[in-house]
Write a protein that binds this DNA or RNA. Structure first.
Lengths: 233, 233
DNA sequence: GTCTATAACCGGATAGAC
DNA sequence: GTCTATCCGGTTATAGAC
């Protein structure tokens, strides 16, 4: 997955319609056949447009995948925000959000691998070491900010500040595991989530302990540096 | 990067030669021009063989990249083993090995991204959640076993058992960072290495403390499970 | 049976006419 | 905004040479 150029702006209502048609067709095919078998030609044909026209709206196959990612991301944020209203403890909140993420992605397990190969690409919006510039990623981390903000757990402010990013990173790790998980209904991933959330909760308490302060300070300084990494080339 | 079929065995001396020629030509071109610009046709042309012949020895462009990875990996193991003879503390040993890894990869920074996009592919030998089956990966972890084995730091045996895998995972993370690092001479990566090794050393001591036993036990059980994950599809 | 070559296929991407 | 024609490069089929 390469960094994407912008897709053509849709200036007219008709264009908007065509674009939406192409995207939904692509999603259907991706779900049915997986990534490789879903050729741009097949998408165009099924959507009843020419190949060239498909490229007019999505400048690459990647753009289509990005668009897919946006969609699942929005879905996830929406259901998560609802769920968060029902939970107050950090642990319960985190558990909900992560489980919902996997629930959201579930229909696309077959081809999700391709999506996250992206994380290794310096230009990807999922790049874990990039500045906050990519909107998807910023939004994605924002969810974890909300998650942390409204919990009343006693967490030192230095840790609290970095926790959203750390949890986002953790969630990326879970997704990576899930991609590889071929157990029935991805049961292993859900088990892993239960166990890791439990552990994380304990580790956060531990790290909040005053006598951990020096190590914590040092670790957090590192994390901040990691994050504010200049990726511009 | 897809999982690779086996390349044709080289049965004759001449074949061996041709194969080596193609590989070294590919490496040159990759270093000169990067991944995309190094087409199979260009490799074949520069090596003075036909396209079909190149494919006889490397059944895909991927295979070529894998072969490259093997080569840098062997280089790294070799220099690391030498370096390890000079260091006894865990911290110094780890620092050497990780720095040398980046040194080894340095000439290929330009196109390394492609290489590690692979890690997200369930069939990749770099897959962090696969069984130990892939030889490259097993060997790769073996280096960290050697690293840990001959250090006399007081580490509880449960942690000691998982430490090689954990350090390998850490080293993969460093590589991921390095791929994204466009600072001059990748200075940021080297700084990150210094800082993280320092921190890891402290964390290992901390985790070795008897009062950490419950958390440690729990975390290690998780790690073992993570690792012995059945990837077969 | 191992090598080597040529020709073709396929799918992502682009150019340019309408 | 839409199309057709074309490029380009990974990959495959296949046939002849050692």
């Amino acid at each position: 997955m390469k960094s994407g150029k912008k897709s053509a702006g849709t200036k007219t209502a008709k264009g908007e319609q065509t674009k939406a048609l192409i995207l939904s067709t692509a999603l259907e095919l991706l779900q049915e056949r997986g990534y490789e078998a879903t050729t741009m030609r097949a998408i165009a044909a099924k959507a009843g447009v020419s190949l060239g026209n498909a490229y007019h709206y999505f400048s690459s196959k990647d753009q289509l995948i990005q668009a897919f990612y946006h969609r699942t991301h929005s879905d996830h944020v929406r259901v998560s925000l609802t769920a968060l209203q029902k939970e107050s403890s950090l642990k319960a909140r985190l558990l909900s959000v992560i489980r919902l993420k996997i629930d959201t992605l579930e229909p696309y397990h077959e081809f999700a691998g391709v999506l996250f190969q992206t994380a290794a690409d310096p230009h990807s919006p999922l790049n874990p070491f990039a500045l906050d510039s990519a909107p998807v990623r910023r939004e994605s981390i924002k969810l974890f900010e909300d998650l942390v903000a409204e919990t009343k757990a006693r967490i030192p402010s230095d840790l609290r500040a970095e926790l959203p990013y750390l949890l986002w990173l953790y969630h990326m790790g879970i997704i990576l595991f899930w991609i590889h998980d071929s157990s029935p209904k991805q049961a292993r991933t859900y088990r892993l989530i239960d166990q890791t959330v439990d552990l994380l909760d304990k580790l956060i308490s531990l790290a909040s302990n005053p006598f951990m302060r020096p190590v914590r300070k040092r670790a957090l300084k590192l994390v901040a540096e990691l994050k504010n990494f200049e990726t511009a080339v």
